[in-house]
Design a protein around this nucleic acid. Structure first.
Lengths: 337, 337
DNA sequence: ACTTAGCACTTGAACGTGTCGAGTGCTAAG
DNA sequence: CTTAGCACTCGACACGTTCAAGTGCTAAGT
């Protein structure tokens, strides 16, 4: 009972099960795959694999399906990521080139990845915790309102409407803007709140009330710019995979809408030698995702932002890994440019 | 066979079916509802209702379920919208007050509406086709990049990174900004593209290349600001309603992700006397939504933006209508403030 | 002219039964 | 270590039966 063949059998079981959704038996294995041995031999191997906890039989007289542990071993054994087809590469290239706004790029990317993998695709918007203040803009909107705009060195723009005394003039706003810019320009986002507050305290009494309002707004914007966010696409693919989940996909959809769950999961995942993280079923402790797997990788050097796909534990891991990796590469290249 | 009672029977059937999901028979009707007549009489009424095409029997010996036409008659007969419970009103108030940024308000609102109705909630982001240019800002990012920011009179901010010659200085940018501002400030968004192009053409040769790039970027931003967008929440509720759809919810999720479908539907819906639009099943011609109903209404006077919920045709219309209406009111009040 | 009780009829759901086939584990021989 | 053979298990499927819900119709009552 040779060890390499046993792993080969595992691989065959996983592959067959992944696109048949049905327990695979010894007979089917020798038929479809060119193993050079008989069904009986395979049965012995399967018994051993079951002993190891890599596969299980749903009932006495059915074929076997991989366990989470089985998928794990299978995934760990993938060492050469199979490249995408030329058509897929072309799709990536044509879809992603020629757009320069980050939000647009991320949106297109996530849709593309969903389409390539037939899974739910997820992108974490880069966090830029080391972002600094590039610019502050105050724009009077009339009626005692002003638009406060905070622009970071990373090109991220946050805006919000602030209320101030109706008699505030455009000249006042200009003065206020100068004060805040002097105080905060080039400083870290984390410090904006305190710096602006301090600047507001030093203003002439006439501008103090408006200054306080604006400082508060700027502080809120700065905090906001650090908020992690996720965009996704392909939830319809999840619905197509009903039946891979014990009851409904409801909890999964809920978790996805919640975002926090995924963000935590992303932060907990550890990358393997190829920079890819795979978390299978209950390996992650988040109950609602216990029947789901996530394949993810980081993108844009130096940032912790992740891109990946989420699907049923019974997913085409090699394909997902290849797509995620390819997309992350293109993405990094474009955003770095 | 009195006409009013027959409608009463229809109402009872709809109500029962909506929260039992099971065909309702004559016996159950007289039991649960205090109709003052016997089951046999109800049967006669039901026969007449079936004749009219308002209800059908899935098979010979089962109760009746409402047809789309039945729901339609039922909805049309609702004339007094039942007010929300105090708890619900409180939820709306506490969740929506105290936030001033439109994106945040919309995000919270859509989640709240999903929670109140147990349906998918959808909000169309206001379009502001009559928006004008409030401000233009150019921020050098170094490395031949500049951030182009376009702020509209409605407080909407669009930004994008543009490439220009590396040797462009901050002073150049300032000059360019002045040129574009002079040309476009206060003008309609639709005209920004042409105006900026014209302004770029008049620049001194030294600035012409950068000017062209920036003009193009500004034009794109202006066009972008008119793009209709939808945000939604509660897709998990849809998954919970599996079984109300003939096969899967996949096409519905796809349509939701597509956005265009919903936007078209929104634009086609006509409001009734109460300002509420209800589109039931195949009343809308969009195939993928043939088994779904939409309850929507406009918000913020003068704009065409809609807010609403989407769910299976078998939905609690009175509750949905009440929630949508209440939420739209609060929303209008807050955004108008 | 409605309403109602009674009754025969239809039909899906639930259940028990029997058959079939895929798949297994084990044993003994190669 | 591999393989053929064989007894065994158990879900899937097909059928037949029963059960209850619900209907439509008719005839009688108000």
């Amino acid at each position: 009972m040779s060890e390499p063949r046993r792993l080969e059998v595992l691989r065959a079981i996983v592959e067959d099960y992944v696109h048949s959704r049905e327990p695979v038996g010894s007979k089917a294995l020798v038929d479809r795959h060119g193993l050079g041995v008989s069904a009986a031999t395979i049965r012995n191997d399967m018994a051993a694999l079951e002993e190891e906890g890599l596969i299980v039989a749903p009932h006495t007289s059915a074929g076997r399906i991989p366990t989470e542990k089985g998928y794990r071993r299978f995934v760990d054994r993938i060492e050469d990521v199979k490249p995408l087809s030329p058509a897929e590469r072309r799709a990536i290239q044509s879809l992603l080139e020629g757009s320069d706004d980050m939000d647009v790029v991320l949106d297109r990317t996530v849709r593309l990845l969903a389409q390539l993998t037939h899974q739910v695709a997820v992108i974490q918007v880069p966090r830029f915790s080391d972002a600094k203040v590039r610019h502050i803009e105050l724009v009077g909107l009339g009626a005692g309102q002003a638009l406060v705009v905070l622009i970071s060195t990373t090109g991220k723009v946050e805006q919000r409407v602030a209320l101030l005394a109706p008699e505030t003039t455009d000249a006042d706003l200009h003065e206020l803007k100068s004060a805040f810019l002097t105080a905060a320009a080039g400083r870290r986002m984390d410090d904006v709140r305190d710096l602006c507050q301090a600047a507001a305290d030093q203003l002439p009494p006439r501008l103090a009330p408006a200054g306080g309002q604006l400082a508060a707004a700027l502080g809120a914007l700065a905090r906001n710019s650090g908020v992690e966010r996720i965009i996704m696409a392909g939830t319809a693919n999840l619905a197509r995979a009903t039946g891979d989940f014990s009851h409904t996909i409801t909890p999964v959809l809920e978790a996805l809408e919640e975002q926090v769950v995924l963000l935590r999961l992303f932060s907990e995942m550890e990358q393997d030698a190829h920079g890819i993280s795979v978390s299978i079923g209950s390996e992650h402790a988040h109950g609602s995702l216990a029947e789901a797997s996530v394949v993810a990788t980081g993108y844009v050097a130096g940032s912790t932002a992740k891109v990946g796909v989420l699907g049923p534990t019974r997913m085409d891991y090699p394909n997902s890994i290849a797509a995620v990796r390819a997309v992350a590469r293109y993405l990094s290249r474009i955003l770095a440019g």
